[in-house]
Design a protein around this nucleic acid. Sequence first.
DNA 1: TAGAATCGCCAC
DNA 2: AAACGTGGCGATTCTA
Length: 584
Amino acid sequence: MDTNYELITAADKFPRIAAELRAQPVIGLDTETTGLDPHTSRLRLLQLATPQTSYVIDCFRFSPEQLSPLLEIITAAQPVKVAHNAKFDAKFLMKHLGIRLNGIFDTYLASLLISAGNENHRHGLAPVASRYLDLQLDKEQQLSNWSGELSRHQLDYAARDAGILLPLRDKMAARLDGMDLLVTAGLEFECVPAIAAMELAGVHLDVARWRDLVRQMTVARDAVADELQEVLGAGAAQMNLFGAPEPINLDSPAQVKEALARIGIEVEDTREWTLSKLVDGHPVIARLLEHRGLSKNLSSFGENILEFINPATGRLHADFRQIGTPTGRITTSSPSLQQIPHTPEYRSCFRAPQGRKLIVADYSQIEMRILADMARDEALLTAFHSGADLHRSTASQMLGIPLADISPSQRESAKGLNYGLVYGMGAEGLAGRIGVSLKEAEMLIERYFKAYSGVAHWLREAGESAVREREARTASGRLWRFSLDPGDRTQQAALRRVGKNAPIQGTSSDIFKRAMRLLDDTLLGLDAQIVNSIHDELVVECNSAIAEEIREIVRFEMVAGAKEFLPRVPVEVEAVISDAWLKK
DNA sequence: TAGAATCGCCAC
DNA sequence: AAACGTGGCGATTCTA
């Protein structure tokens, strides 16, 4: 495809171009960079496209001051900037030009929303252009060297990528509209600058503390491993040259299963769920599980995390995938900051640097509140309005006894139900989880649904409509379309569970993303920045001197985000000021 | 031998 | 078989 482009080599052209761009309702935006990491790579080209022309600006030639007429356009809400994976461009613009990319239409996020969970769809610019414009792009120049003299071919490529964004947006906006996804899309697009800023900022890890922890864990694991080799080797058939039993690989489920059989413990598999039932009679099982835990933590959260520390910033900059799941949850990788074990030893390694504090804030029982609101369940809403402990309230409602008389075990059962039911749990699952018989579990669920009849009705309907309509939606209108083989009963049961959970988990994502944007906006200009985001928890790093003010801002904006989607239920946010990632 | 599939487990 | 939902990821084992 030939794109009409103009390579800008003189700063005196900027006022004319800026005027032309400002007059557009929508422009295309793309960048080419010398690498993928904004901290160690440079911004080479900035491409801004009107329907007629792609303007290609060589950023190596101009200072931010010279570029300022164009930067104002990028920062303003209008014109709308169409970009594919705008987070990437936003990070480079923020790092190298000190500006926020606002007024985004992101064709990558739009593609994910329209695909509505279809795992077969790819979302790179090439497959998206093919799907929506029937255009075959080649991306061979994407990873070419953008730091030297640029070839005609590279400039063509750069201009073309920016040029196709406008027709692409036309097609996708119509699709979003037709699928009632414009509200969700707006929510996602507005969240991009907040996530870009969070990634760019990264989190601070206390390396010495982390190394210490890894050392301790290694010693502990090796001790348990030695002990296990001795016990499990007792029945070994194979001896090595020194007459000692051949060591078994404790990380191999197959070898562990065999070794257990040799000492008289027959098991179907070696999953925790299976083994934990045998803990009582067999001390070796407890040791095995202990080894698993240590080994898992060391391989996933050991020295390897340190490799992700950025040489330029000394911090961890995880990759946040904004639509990581069909329910809209954000996922992280490289490293996976959302899966750091929730123990003080681990979390205390993530610390505020000198002179700074962390605000650790999370929603209190947000999914149950969403359920109460969506189901409009009188009793559950009343429980939340009363401000009493939810699980005690639930137990009290179910058993018909006063709040004050609820025993700890009654509260635990109620808690199991509250958490389990938003995941579509059945009686078997509950029985296993809280350790009661199937009969008792059935009775508990019956009582639960009697106490919360609105919830019972809503959950039933959510499950049925998922099977009937093959889709589920959240409060913002986010869509997940399901495939279902009609004859497959197991699949149908699974779909009923997803149908119950998806609107709740997805609405939680809606709320969270709205809160992130509100908070990021309010923190602009203050010495405070969101540094981590874990489904219902935000971590903000700020100057110690303003920590109390920031804590209140965080609380306020998180509540404000939730209120937009939950008109019927009060929302609570627990926020603490801490030196480390702890809910102290 | 590289990549896929599986098991297992971390988070919310 | 599966057994409450969504992921990421590491180690082992299978497969071409």
